[in-house]
Simulated assay, not measured.
Amino acid sequence: MARLVITQKIGDKIYISNDKEDIALITIGKVDRNQVRLVFEADRKVHITRGNAKEKKKI
């Protein structure tokens, strides 16, 4: 799995793409103390799952 660590500001956008198309768009929505609000936009065929929800399924 690839990893990218970046610093972004509110309103900045991150595109996730394959060789043919953009798959998802992530926008930095809000930063408050120890929380960051991320806005995910993707086609309905793309599954987006929070890490803690996915980890609970494994237990």
Rank of each mutant, 00 (worst) to 15 (best):
Q8V: 11
I14Y: 05
I23W: 00
E21Q: 07
D22P: 01
D19I: 13
R3I: 11
Q8G: 09
Y15K: 11
D22H: 02
R50W: 08
L38N: 03
Y15T: 07
E41T: 08
I23G: 00
L38W: 05
R33Q: 12
I16Q: 01
N34P: 02
K9D: 15
T7R: 14
T49C: 05
L25D: 07
K54Q: 08
L25S: 08
R44E: 12
A42Y: 03
R3W: 13
K20Q: 13
E41A: 11
K9R: 14
I23Y: 00
R37I: 12
K13P: 05
D19Y: 15
R44K: 12
T27R: 05
A42W: 03
Q8P: 07
A2H: 09
R3F: 14
A24I: 00
K20P: 04
A42C: 09
N34L: 07
S17E: 13
Q35N: 12
E41F: 10
V39E: 05
K57Q: 09
N18S: 04
K13C: 07
Y15M: 11
D12M: 11
E55L: 12
I28L: 02
L25K: 10
K54A: 10
R50G: 06
D12T: 10
V5L: 14
K13A: 10
K13Q: 13
L25N: 08
K56M: 07
K58I: 01
S17V: 08
R50A: 09
T7P: 06
V31H: 07
K54M: 11
H47M: 12
K30T: 02
R33M: 12
L4A: 14
L25Q: 11
T7H: 14
L4M: 13
E21A: 06
I14R: 03
G11C: 03
G11N: 04
V5G: 07
Q8L: 15
F40Y: 09
K58P: 01
E21S: 06
